[in-house]
Design a protein around this nucleic acid. Structure first.
Lengths: 235, 235
DNA sequence: GAGAAAAAATAACGCCGTTATGCCATACTG
DNA sequence: CAGTATGGCATAACGGCGTTATTTTTTCTC
């Protein structure tokens, strides 16, 4: 039916692109090897020769998701106030999740698509993405703004708190979006105060981060689908 | 093969029991209509006549999950310090999630088993379970311990924060359990401070709740599988 | 150009949720 | 008490899924 596919990398990236589009447009249920291959004009076997199975393709999506998150993080410009930067990272995290909801669900929702589950290496890769936030927490601590000396702990607090909000938000447990917004803002300030900042300073920082939201949050390019440099990862 | 089934309610509760056992023992992947029916010695059709499909049976699991959560909540005895009570609710929430990890994943993980998704009514039911926590937050506010006057907001902050930790914990993103414990304790104190309590009072409350953990957290009965009183909910 | 190696197509296996059909015991009805 | 109808369950089938074995095609290498 379709013109003959010439070489290999073409079909591989085509499969990734189509999978990403299906995931974004129709959600995780639409991610099936048969569907993707049919949409690419090839047979189901292409998924196996290129990714070693469905789980390999899902892994590609997960890594793409972390790349997008890292992209948002890298576009957070320092404001001079490390606590405000911290809040900006929180906003970037939530913005990324709300922009790519289905992708985020695959990354953290434990959707277990096609029997996929993250390997220890994958999890380490995911946690590595937060290193930028850990560095920011270190700056906050060095500036004497936080009570604790454990930057990683603070980063994990921010991460888990925002993940919880976003997860329930995406699962429609927080029905009205304004609810989620209010909880998010309150959580941000409460966290900054709770880890040691003063009420006034934390409020100022979070408010300033809110003001910078529009200009800071969007990355330059529209986060295109990228391929991993390393070799195949058969499930 | 099996002796003739006499009446209806027997097979129904058997299906629920087996489904709950399969979910707890082998995880969400083991929850299939065919498997459950086979384990019950009946045919697949029993799932449809009793629950209108797989989604109905999953819904039963979700309601059971909320019942267990409510059971843990109802066994939280007031300590006299409302903020300590608040921390106890947080501990009860996490304890329930870690005790029934697969059930918790079905409730909030968006696993989308058998095309199941919560209806608006279901979500409302889930949020209603938190009303106990909202009342506790009200007591905290009336005691002048919290800065805000919005008890529901505070309850949602606690909820989302702990859910985020638990979700990542169950997804093995927080690799070492001691990590999760540390983040949980820090999150609890940070939240209590952040929403308005003083450093000393919050630390005292959270510490006292930690001391009460062993005796308070376990409910009397082992949370048996119950049936919903209402009629069938065909998907 | 010929042979070797990689990739894709075809077809099959076993699982899934779901549905249509028929049986048969139960529960009403006269 | 007999006859009937209702409804729960079994049997079997349909389409779709991930996966695998086999065969065919392509592509690279010598």
């Amino acid at each position: 039916m379709s013109p003959r596919r010439r070489s290999k990398p073409q079909t591989r990236s085509a499969l990734v692109d189509i999978a990403a589009r299906l995931l974004a447009d129709e959600g995780p249920e639409a991610l099936s090897a048969r569907r993707i291959a049919a949409e690419a004009g090839s047979s189901t076997m292409a998924v196996y020769t290129n990714f070693g199975g469905m789980s390999g393709l899902v892994r590609e999506m997960v890594y793409e998701g972390f790349a997008r998150m890292e992209n948002y993080f890298s576009h957070v410009a320092p404001t001079g106030d490390p606590v405000a930067d911290m809040a900006l990272f929180g906003r970037a995290y939530r913005h990324n999740a709300l922009t790519n909801p289905h992708l985020y669900a695959v990354m953290f929702g434990g959707a277990s698509l096609g029997g996929f589950s993250l390997s220890a290496e994958d999890r380490q890769y995911g946690r590595f993405t937060l290193s930028t936030v850990v560095e920011c927490a270190t700056r906050c601590i060095e500036a004497g703004r936080f009570r604790t000396g454990d930057a990683e702990l603070v980063a994990h607090q921010l991460w888990t708190a925002i993940h919880g909000l976003v997860a329930l938000e995406l699962g429609d447990y927080l029905i009205e979006p304004c609810d989620a917004d209010r909880v998010f803002e309150a959580q941000l300030t409460s966290l900054m105060i709770g880890v040691g900042d003063t009420l006034e300073a934390a409020t100022r920082s979070v408010t300033s981060s809110h003001a910078r939201l529009a200009t800071e949050i969007e990355p330059a390019e529209p986060a295109p689908v990228t391929e991993r440099p390393a070799g195949d990862r058969t499930a």
